[in-house]
Design a protein around this nucleic acid. Structure first.
Lengths: 228, 228
DNA sequence: CCTACCGATCGGTAGG
DNA sequence: CCTACCGATCGGTAGG
C-alpha cells in the first residue's frame, strides 16, 4: 500500500551512518497533505465528470500541480481512484461506528436504523460527500486488488445493518426478507446522490441538515410499518 | 432527427425523371438494420465499460464495421449515446403502457403498482436491458438537446406511477409522501441493475422470469402496508 | 515536484 | 460503408 520510496538521499552505496537531524520519511513529511489534496480533488472531478472522462491533467490543475506531478504520489490514475474509494469507505465506516456508539444502551432497532440511515445520507449528501458516490458509480473502473480491499470495508459497513433489519423483520416492522430489504433500502438511499439538491438560501448549513433529517424520516416511514 | 441523406444517385444536376424501379430512400433501405445494430452494440458496450471508456472503434468492431463507419450513421459518439437513451425510453414507455392496458378495468392501485414494478424490473433486468441502465448511469454524458428529449419520455413514464402512489397513500398503504416515495422506490428498483444476477442453470428463461416476479413481490412487501 | 517528452489512442473527416 | 489520414489528447516516464 505504501508509495514508492521518495527518499532523496544519496543512491545505493555503502550505507553510511546518517549525521545531523534525520531525514523525514514519506510518512513524516507533509507530502501527506498534497496527497490528500490530490485524493479530494480527484474525488470531486471523478464525481462530476466520471473517472474515464477526467484526465490526470485535470486533477493536477485542480490542486495546482503540473501534469506529471500526480505520478509522484500515485503510480497510476487507477491507484488514485482506488485511494478515493478506500479513504471514502474508511471515513464512512468510522462515522457509522461513531453514530452507533452515540446511541443509548438499550436503543430499539428502529432507533438504531434511524441512526444508520441518517449517517448514510450524511455520507452521501453532506460535506465532503464526493468519495462514496464515486465508489458507487465508478465501481467497474477500479482494479481487482483494490476492489477486494474496498469490499472488506463495505462488508463491515453493511454488516452493521443486518441485525437491525432482522430484528425489525422479526417484530413485523419490516415487511420483506431482510436480505432483499437491505439491497433495496441501500438502493433507495444511494439513488439520492442522483437527485438530491441541498436547499439553498441563508443558513444553508442548518437547512441542509434539517433536510437530511426529513429525508431520514421519510425513508423510515416508507420502509417500516408500525410496531405491533 | 433523420440522418443526412445517404442517397447515392447522381450528384445535383437538372432533375431527370427516374426510370425503372425507383431507388429506395434511406428509410426504406435496410440501413435501418445497421443503425439498429449500432445502437444495440453501443448500448451493450456503454453498459459494460461506460460511455467515456468505450471507443467508437469498439462499437464499430462489435457490429463488424471499420473504424470510420459509425459516423456514416451518427454524426458523433454523443449522438449514439442519445440514440441509446431515446430508443430505450421509447421501448420502456411502450411496454409500460401495454402492461397497464392489459390490466382488468377496475384493478386496485396495488395491482396497478405491481404491474408497473414488474415491468420496470423487466426493463432493467430482462432481455435487451442495456438501454435503460445506460440512460440511468451515463446521464451526465448526454448533451442538453437530447437530455430534453429523453426527459419528456421519462416524465411520461413516471407520470403513470403518480396516481397509484397517491391512491395508496390515501388508503394508508403507502407510509411516506408520494413524491419522495416515488424517488426512493425508483432508487430501490434502479439499483437492482447493480447487483442483480439472473439465475443460471437449465431453463434459464423460466427461472429468470420467476425471479423477477419474486423481486416484484419483495418490493411490494417492503414498500406497502396492509390495506386498512 | 517540474520540464520535456513519448507512444498510443481517440473522435472525426475527405474522398471514393 | 471503406481507406487513409489528421490533430488533439492522454497516461505515464526520465532526469533533474
Amino acid at each position: 500500500m505504501s508509495l514508492a520510496d521518495p527518499d532523496t538521499s544519496s543512491p545505493a552505496e555503502v550505507p553510511r551512518r546518517p549525521r545531523g537531524r534525520p531525514r523525514k520519511t514519506a510518512d513524516e513529511r507533509d507530502d501527506g497533505n498534497r496527497r490528500r489534496e490530490l485524493v479530494a480533488g480527484a474525488a470531486r472531478l471523478f464525481r462530476q465528470q466520471g473517472f474515464a472522462a477526467t484526465s490526470t491533467r485535470d486533477i493536477a490543475a485542480a490542486v495546482g500541480m503540473r501534469s506529471g506531478s500526480p505520478f509522484y504520489h500515485f503510480e497510476s490514475k487507477e491507484a488514485l481512484l482506488g485511494a478515493v474509494m478506500l479513504e471514502g469507505m474508511q471515513g464512512a465506516l468510522q462515522r457509522q461506528q461513531a453514530a452507533l456508539a452515540q446511541l443509548p444502551a438499550g436503543a430499539a432497532p428502529r432507533e438504531r436504523l434511524r441512526a444508520l440511515v441518517r449517517n448514510h445520507f450524511d455520507v452521501l449528501l453532506g460535506p465532503d460527500s464526493d468519495f462514496i458516490p464515486v465508489m458507487l458509480y465508478e465501481w467497474r473502473s477500479v482494479n481487482a486488488a483494490q476492489r477486494v480491499e474496498v469490499n472488506q470495508l463495505k462488508d463491515r459497513y453493511e454488516a452493521d445493518w443486518v441485525p437491525e433489519l432482522e430484528a425489525l423483520h422479526a417484530q413485523g416492522q419490516l415487511g420483506a426478507d431482510p436480505v432483499l430489504a437491505r439491497l433495496m433500502i441501500f438502493g433507495a438511499l444511494n439513488w439520492s446522490a442522483q437527485w438530491y439538491v441541498p436547499p439553498s438560501g441563508r443558513s444553508a448549513r442548518a437547512r441542509s441538515r434539517a433536510s437530511l433529517d426529513e429525508l431520514t424520516e421519510s425513508a423510515l416511514q416508507l420502509f417500516l410499518r408500525e410496531p405491533r
